[in-house]
């Protein structure tokens, strides 16, 4: 009798858990909504409109034509060049939790039919920070776009360099910037989309080297973190400092794009460049002898 009661209780609890909606609290206004509502709203708070982070899967799902995504270099996992205490263990835990082996996801896909190479940094993995593998994956994505003559789109979101990898992390800034430079010299189109937050070594390398720079509403974008600046200069920071709108005003972002419009805006930019390529852009590069 007692045993039966207990098992009945367990069954009831399981059923309730399965049926009850899974809630998400907004980090900005604190109100909560059902997870499904959040996801259908592209991780934008249904109450206050604040943008929350998107996973790499969600991001690519948002911009790619259904069924067109093809990941590459997805096996590379975290290296631990300094044998940093606790680093490998933390990486394993994050891999289990998120299903990601590193914070960068690289993939081919189509945007309304136009084939592109895309990179997304996923903040659930070490805050999207740049490790040597992230630098390598970004570099290979740039090289792949260069080789296949495809446009490149990178969604940056990063806390900066991966501290646990020391100098190896720093050198990725030079490696990725050098790759972007070569791609650019070869006439490649690179659209950089800055999402919340883009800071440190990622801001100071490939993220700010795009031909076209887009940003998401409210995204924090900067080199030094606001706390470091406040502590160093001892002055209160102006309202909206380092937000996407602030950078747009100061001329470092071409356009702020809502998620609802992202795919169409990307398509418009791609189309403008695709049409340019068929024209005399090629001839200009060859020295105007066409």
């Amino acid at each position: 009798m007692e045993k039966e009661e207990r098992s009945l209780k367990t069954v009831l609890m399981t059923v309730t858990r399965k049926l009850a909606p899974d809630y998400v609290n907004c980090k900005s206004c604190g109100r909560r909504a059902v997870r499904k509502v959040w996801q259908e709203n592209m991780n934008i708070c249904p109450f206050c409109g604040r943008y929350q982070a998107m996973s790499a899967d969600q991001r690519l799902g948002l911009i790619f034509d259904p069924g067109s995504r093809q990941d590459f270099n997805s096996d590379a996992g975290v290296r631990d060049p300094l044998n940093f205490p606790g680093y490998s263990e933390k990486a394993k835990k994050l891999e289990k939790k998120t299903g990601l082996k590193e914070s960068a996801v690289t993939a081919f896909g189509r945007i309304n039919g136009i084939r592109v190479v895309a990179v997304v940094l996923d903040t659930r993995f070490f805050m999207g920070s740049m490790s040597s593998i992230v630098g390598e994956k970004v570099t290979r994505a740039v090289e792949t776009a260069d080789r296949e003559k495809l446009p490149l789109i990178i969604f940056a979101a990063s806390g900066g360099a991966r501290m646990q990898e020391g100098i190896h992390s720093l050198m990725q800034m030079a490696k990725t910037s050098s790759a972007v430079q070569e791609f650019s010299e070869n006439g490649g189109l690179y659209i950089s989309c800055l999402t919340h937050p883009t800071t440190g070594g990622v801001t100071a390398s490939f993220a700010t080297l795009g031909d076209i720079t887009l940003a998401e509403p409210g995204a924090l974008i900067g080199f030094a973190g606001p706390r470091v600046i406040e502590q160093t200069i001892g002055v209160k920071l102006p309202k909206g400092f380092q937000r996407a709108e602030y950078l747009h005003k100061h001329g470092f972002v071409d356009r702020i794009v809502k998620r609802q419009e992202l795919k169409e805006v990307l398509y418009d930019i791609l189309k403008l460049h695709e049409d340019s390529r068929g024209g005399f852009a090629e001839d200009i590069r060859k020295g105007g002898q066409g």
Binding site: M173, S177, A204, A207, T208, L209, F223, H250, F252
Partner: peptide
């Protein structure tokens, strides 16, 4: 544009 200057 501290980030852009370093990257450039």
């Amino acid at each position: 544009g501290q980030g852009e200057a370093i990257a450039r």
